[in-house]
Design a protein around this nucleic acid. Structure first.
Length: 271
DNA sequence: AAGTGGCTCAACCGCCGCGGG
DNA sequence: ACCCGCGGCGGTTGAGCCACT
């Protein structure tokens, strides 16, 4: 509503690097953040000696260089969770990402877009039967929309490019989902049956409308869970490792050191 | 072997909300 | 109450890779 036009974040466009990050830039960024944190993204590039805009640095850090970022293929559980959460929240990638520790919104968005494209394609060619992945009778007929195959569990040979071959994910959906949540429950002890029951009761009052939903819930036709706030704060803690340094500084330092070592090796910077 | 089209994913762009002055 | 800067978010792009012909 008549908001002022903002100044571009990078005034000196001409002088700034764009495009892919070089290993040297990565190293500079990591080392700077390790030493000084990232209190001020706008000032960071100057301080770190980078010809990048602050946003670019932030993005690079969050999506790629963060110690807790999980690289590699999505597991089936993660895929299923994304589908479920997307049903509840729509394109709230950051919200969804917050439920998948180690995964970034960008990554999830990419994955979903790949999935969506396939879904749309298949919808145009196949008559639209129920698209809810929970319908476990989904034919595995080759490239049905459920080929949600942004998975690559497939006999992982570790190739960097992912082979998105159709999978029978959805057939496994229910079981996997239950398993996954049980896993979460076990590992965190944060999701209890009481909540599940309460939520089931509440569900009757809910419509599928994803507007302004309680962020601590996600809803499914068949089962609902309410995730306790501690779970979310736990996730927050994981994603904001920088803020937790004071709690266990020495351990974090060690972790960061080894992460840096790993990255240096990955980036070919190790002598 | 070369050409081509499709796919993936890192990065960019622009808008929004929040908080401080 | 208003202005402004910053961080964050979601949509989009395009370079590089791969599979197919």
């Amino acid at each position: 509503m008549g908001r002022m036009r903002r100044r571009e974040c990078c005034e000196k466009d001409g002088e700034l690097n764009k495009g892919l990050w070089t290993p040297e830039e990565d190293k500079k960024l990591i080392q700077h953040i390790e030493k000084h944190g990232h209190a001020n993204w706008r000032a960071l590039p100057k301080l770190a000696g980078l010809s990048r805009c602050g946003k670019s640095c932030r993005l690079r850090w969050i999506n790629y260089l963060r110690p807790d970022v999980k690289r590699g293929n999505f597991t089936k559980e993660e895929e299923n969770m994304i589908i479920k959460l997307h049903q509840s929240w729509g394109n709230k990638w950051s919200k969804i990402a917050s439920c998948l520790p180690g995964r970034t919104d960008n990554e999830i968005k990419n994955i979903w877009n790949i999935y969506l494209k396939k879904q749309i394609q298949n919808k145009s060619t196949n008559p639209p039967n129920d698209q809810t992945p929970t319908s476990s009778s989904s034919s595995s007929s080759s490239s049905s929309m459920n080929s949600c195959a942004f998975n690559n569990q497939n006999e992982g040979d570790g190739t960097s490019k992912q082979n998105h071959e159709p999978s029978n994910n959805i057939d496994l959906f229910d079981d996997l989902e239950v398993e996954h949540w049980l896993m979460l429950e076990e590992s965190h002890g944060l999701i209890n049956n009481e909540n599940i029951e309460n939520n089931n009761n509440n569900n009757n009052n809910k419509e599928g409308d994803d507007d302004e939903e309680d962020p601590t819930k996600f809803i499914d036709d068949e089962m609902d869970y309410q995730i306790e706030p501690e779970f979310w704060s736990l996730i927050d803690d994981q994603t904001c490792f920088n803020e937790t340094i004071s709690q266990d500084e020495s351990r974090t330092m060690v972790e960061n050191k080894s992460w840096l070592a790993y990255l240096e090796e990955e980036l070919g910077l190790k002598e």
